[in-house]
Simulated scan of single mutants.
Amino acid sequence: MLPRDRQAAFAAAILDRSIAIPTGLRQPGRFAIYRNNVFAGLIATLTSRFPVTCRLLGTDCFEGCALRFIAAQPPTTPVIHDYGAGFADFVGTLSDLSQLAYLPDVVRLEWARHLALHAADAPVLMPQALVDVAPERVGDLVFEIHPAARLLHSAYPIHTIWQTNTFDIETAAIAADAPGQSVLVSRHDDEVVLLALAPAAAAFAAALFTGASLGAAAGEMSDMAPTLAALLQARAFTGYAFSLDTTQDAPCLSTD
C-alpha cells in the first residue's frame, strides 16, 4: 500500500468507528486513544460553537447529536474554523428532535455569530459620515455591507431564545405561539452584537442588504430614520455609493 493510501485509510478509520484498526501500526493499542481524542476535540469544538443549543438539549443529548454529525459529516479540511457549517441542517433531519422545530434556526443564529466574530476587518460607516449628503440624494444611497453583518429571519423567536439561554441563570418561559423574529448579527470591535428587528425594519434591512437604494428600501415606511440609525450603530455597513444613475459619485467611507 502506498504511503498516501495508508494515510487515507488511517484517516478514514479515525472518523468511522465501524472501520477496523489499520494494519501495520507500531502501537495499535494507542489507536483507540487517538480516535477518542479526535472525537472529543470535535465535540468540544461544536459545544463551544453552539453553547445555547447545548443548553437547550442538555449536555448528553447535545454530545449524542454531535457524535452523529461527526460520523455523517466529518471535517473535510484541516481548518477547524470552518467546521459546523452544516450542523443546523443536520439537526433538522433528526426525527427525535422534530418536536423542537425552532432548534435549527437557533443553531443558524449561533453559526452566524461565529462567522461574524471571525469575519474580515473592514472600515465602518458611522452616522456622521452621512451629514454632508444632500437631502435630494438621500434616497439614492446604496450601502456596502460589512463582512461581519448578516440577517436571519425565523418563524420562531430565536433572539429571545438565544438571549434567555445566554444571560439568564433560569431561562424565561417563551410562549409556544410567540411570533417569529428577524435578527441582525454584526460586530462591534471584537464583540458580536445581535439586534432584533421588527417586521417592517427587517424588510427594510433586507432590501438594503440586497442592494436596494435607501428610497426603494424605505417603501411605505413612515419613518425610516430610527431603523437606519440602528443599523449604522450596529456597524452593518462599510460605506456607501449612489444608485447607478450618477456613477460619478465616489463611495464615502468612515472608520470609528
Rank of each mutant, 00 (worst) to 15 (best):
Y156V: 00
Y156C: 00
Y156D: 00
Y156F: 15
Y156S: 00
Y156N: 00
P157F: 08
P157S: 04
P157Q: 01
I158M: 02
I158Y: 08
H159L: 03
H159N: 10
H159Y: 14
T160D: 14
T160Y: 12
T160C: 12
I161G: 03
I161S: 05
I161C: 01
I161P: 04
I161D: 03
W162Q: 08
Q163V: 01
Q163R: 15
Q163I: 01
Q163F: 11
T164E: 04
T164N: 09
T164I: 03
N165H: 15
N165W: 15
N165L: 07
T166K: 05
T166L: 05
T166F: 04
T166N: 11
T166D: 01
F167D: 06
F167K: 05
D168F: 07
D168W: 02
D168Q: 04
D168L: 02
I169G: 10
I169Q: 11
I169R: 10
I169Y: 02
E170S: 07
T171M: 06
T171P: 06
T171C: 08
T171R: 13
T171G: 00
T171I: 04
T171Q: 12
T171L: 01
A172E: 04
A172S: 13
A172C: 03
A172G: 01
A173L: 09
A173E: 05
I174Q: 06
I174E: 01
I174S: 07
A175R: 14
A175D: 15
A175H: 12
A176C: 10
A176Y: 03
A176K: 12
D177R: 12
D177P: 04
D177E: 14
D177A: 14
D177Q: 14
D177K: 09
A178E: 13
A178K: 09
A178L: 08
P179Y: 12
P179S: 14
P179L: 08
G180I: 01
G180V: 03
G180P: 05
G180C: 07
Q181V: 03
Q181Y: 12
Q181P: 04
Q181S: 10
Q181M: 09
S182M: 02
S182T: 01
S182F: 14
S182V: 03
V183G: 10
V183I: 15
V183H: 13
V183N: 09
V183K: 13
L184Y: 04
L184D: 02
L184N: 09
L184W: 05
L184E: 09
V185Y: 11
